[in-house]
Design a protein around this nucleic acid. Structure first.
Length: 299
DNA sequence: AATTTCATCAACCGCCCGCTC
DNA sequence: GGAGCGGGCGGTTGATGAAAT
């Protein structure tokens, strides 16, 4: 049995919202509050899908939405958050007061994606010849810049949803990198040194039968990112973002975790969902993340 | 001035997840 | 345990105005 549609489309208005519709929605939500979106069209007398009402409210009508151009500070933050979180626009928007995920996503796709693109090397400078729908009648092809997401997708599979990352595949040509060497030393060929004294990643194990094969890292992300014990160094990016976003409380809210920050020894921090599939990262992301200055090496 | 191309962004679409029954 | 619902999310589309030709 298929999934029932979110609403009956017949007789519903589509496209841009009118000022009257906006006012009806605002009045209704001011009286009854947010939520129960599917009830709203019926009860407020709007000829709109409940989802459409939700979107209109969240992206446009909400009183706390900030209007106007994205500032330089916000832009920097978006870039850094995107580096950290990928295309998880709602999470990024959650760290930027007054901005919506839709707005940030649009801003990225139209402006920042290109900016960041221009600062990268050739792998991002991919152009595709595609037929533009608007010019179809002219039988003319033009170049259209692919979105960064699409470009990255063409390089490797990227899981953008919040997942429990417990296995990472590092392609063979990236394995002899300082990060891997520093963390695992000669363990690549001899088996991973899993002692707690000398490894930053103390809970990781890795398997490979020869140096030419892809390295599969398996680890317990809960232990790896035990925020109560391994608070990042105040000099690194993550710590800044962590502080900006409100620290433990935000992680708890966003990931549904239960963070023990009271000095106890238990680690019950959890991620929102689990997957046993390995996560593949693009070469560019791996290179960037493996920069020496990305890691705080414990002495 | 007219036409074409480009940039922007609100809105839509389809998928996913958590919750309830 | 599974079906269905409600809500959330990210990707994509299309209308519109600006800029270029």
């Amino acid at each position: 049995m298929g999934r029932s549609p979110c609403c009956v489309n017949e007789g519903l208005n589509r496209g841009a919202w009118t000022a009257i519709e906006d006012q009806v929605l605002i009045d209704y939500i001011n009286t009854h509050g947010e939520g129960k979106w599917r009830r709203i069209p019926k009860e407020a007398g709007l000829k709109r899908c409940g989802k459409s009402c939700r979107l209109r409210w969240l992206n446009y009508l909400r009183p706390d939405i900030k209007r106007g151009n994205i500032t330089q500070e916000e832009e920097d933050l978006i870039i850094r958050l995107h580096k950290l979180l990928g295309n998880r626009w709602s999470l990024i928007a959650g760290r930027i007061p007054g901005r919506t995920d839709n707005e940030i996503k649009n801003y990225w796709n139209t402006t920042l994606g290109k900016k960041v693109n221009n600062g990268q090397d050739d792998v991002h400078q991919v152009h595709l010849t595609v037929e533009n729908k608007n010019t179809k009648k002219k039988k003319k092809k033009k170049y259209k810049t692919k979105s960064l997401t699409t470009v990255l997708d063409s390089i490797a599979a990227i899981r953008t949803r919040a997942v429990r990352c417990n296995r990472v595949v590092v392609t063979s040509h990236l394995v002899p990198h300082p990060f891997v060497k520093n963390v695992h030393g000669t363990a690549l060929e001899e088996g991973i040194n899993n002692s707690e004294e000398d490894n930053t990643i103390t809970t990781a194990t890795a398997t490979t039968t020869s140096p030419s094969e892809n390295l599969v890292l398996e680890f317990d992300v809960g232990k790896l990112f035990n925020v109560s014990e391994n608070i990042p160094d105040s000099s690194d990016d993550y710590w800044e973002l962590y502080q900006f976003g409100g620290g433990d409380k935000v992680l708890e809210d966003q990931y549904g975790g239960n963070i023990n920050n009271g000095g106890g020894s238990s680690n019950n921090y959890k991620w929102s969902s689990a997957s046993s599939e390995p996560i593949l990262f693009s070469e560019e992301m791996l290179k960037d993340w493996m920069r020496e200055d990305c890691f705080h090496h414990q002495s």
